[in-house]
Design a binder for these strands. Structure first.
Lengths: 255, 255
DNA sequence: CAGTGGTCTAGACCACACT
DNA sequence: GTGTGGTCTAGACCACTGC
């Protein structure tokens, strides 16, 4: 688009809704990501290429990519290129897990030991359907797992996934896979989690959870309800977790 | 600095530590903020003015300010100017409080009722001294307050402040002040909290807390330990809070 | 060396707020 | 209209990576 040309903004909008070129280009790149034109871990075209493709200057593409990088959708590497973000091969193994050991750091703790406790296919209860934007009764996958750190069971999680996108996921497949669950989702099902929202509460352990975590029933636990979203704010996972916080804590940075 | 001139980077650094101009200018603006050259709520000089002052182009100043804005140190308002961030007169009244009502939103809840329970001056215990980067035994201010929403006491907080910067703070002065505590810190003591870190755990209410929150002693509560920092990462407040999560939850966004 | 992202400039024009 | 931040360009040069 030549400078000075009118915008391709909405036709009958109340407000003209001015949208700068870099925003429109951001949307175009976003569509490429959604359509898996470039897969997680792969490079997207260079700024020059994209500038030529979209007929804008490099600076405009740059600003679009800057925003995508700020949202962790894409990672810039000077001298190499810009890459689609991925949950695998990331130095930060657990991008969405904020639980930290009270002493030492994550690296000193070693890898988590994962154990799948249950995995079944069922019809979505009302609350799950609402969270995943499904109709009540649609097929969902539900699984429960325990994470242990250095031999101490620390997290119990119930995970609900929409049946459609995750058709074919089984306990065996999960157990066989070593890395983070979200990495498996990417490689096996083409679902990339982009962001998540958590609601945190303090609760008392129920009998089942207490047993799985090897604590007594009156033990206070952190209840963490997470909804994870793919591109375009489509909810793709509901996860309810119970965290022991006697040796770990949930860390959060405010700014 | 003319284009092409060498950087004013560190003299004897192992690595030359290349630092772009916009970073250096960011630091200069930061110093102005620290020195209260411009106070919270006031505008900083226009991009053109700063560009002239620092002898760089507007674009370079722009990038510096962009980063400061991304860190919430400064707020850009198109057509008006760039303003020093403030905890007062902000539509988001509680910038660092993540507790949300389960139903409805913050606005539907009305203002919090604040009640100061205690306020004393004492010598810093070892843990408090460590958190505030003081020597053990230095004077600190400690206060305890209860926040209630719609008549229900929901939060108990113990706040520790370094005695020096907060000399003259009394329970009366706090009680007389209507707005958020951090707003008072700005206007009365020139201390602007810039960021904070929280460690969250699930605990059982002790006798004192249970009484203040009007819950039974076995009630699970969210324990939130916060360290708040001014400019330059100087810790200026340690806050230990206990939150009821039967009607509220701690909300967090992950990306 | 070529190719990538990163910095910086100078200038033009746009959107917005105030007066 | 003036002044502010916001967008966009075209071109130059720098820093980093890998061939």
């Amino acid at each position: 688009m030549a400078p000075g040309e009118p915008d391709a903004a909405g036709p009958a909008g109340q407000t003209p809704a001015f949208s700068p070129q870099y925003q429109q280009i951001k949307v175009l790149i976003l569509k490429g990501l959604q359509a898996a034109e470039w897969k997680p871990g792969e490079p997207i075209p260079s700024e020059m290429d994209l500038a030529a493709r979209f007929r804008v200057s490099q600076g405009t593409v740059r600003k679009a990519i800057d925003e995508l990088a700020a949202e962790n959708l894409v990672i810039r590497r000077q001298g190499k290129g810009t890459f689609v973000a991925t949950h695998a091969e990331q130095q930060v193994q657990y991008r969405f897990l904020r639980l930290m050991p009270d002493a030492g750091d994550v690296s000193s703790e070693g890898p988590a030991e994962r154990q799948i406790v249950a995995c079944k296919r069922l019809r979505a209860p009302a609350d799950v359907a609402r969270a995943l934007a499904l109709r009540a009764g649609e097929a969902v996958l539900q699984l429960r797992r325990v994470l242990a750190f250095q031999g101490t069971p620390t997290i119990v999680e119930d995970v609900w996934l929409p049946g459609g996108p995750f058709r074919g996921l089984t306990a065996d497949r999960l157990a066989a896979y070593g890395g983070p669950m979200y990495a498996l989702f990417e490689t096996e099902f083409g679902v990339h989690m982009v962001r998540a929202e958590e609601k945190i509460r303090a609760v008392l352990a129920d009998a089942t959870t207490a047993k799985l975590l090897d604590v007594k029933q009156s033990e206070p636990l952190l209840s963490v309800e997470r909804i994870a979203y793919t591109y375009n704010d489509v909810p793709m996972e509901l996860r309810r977790g119970w965290y022991r916080t006697d040796t770990h804590h949930y860390r959060n940075a405010l700014s």
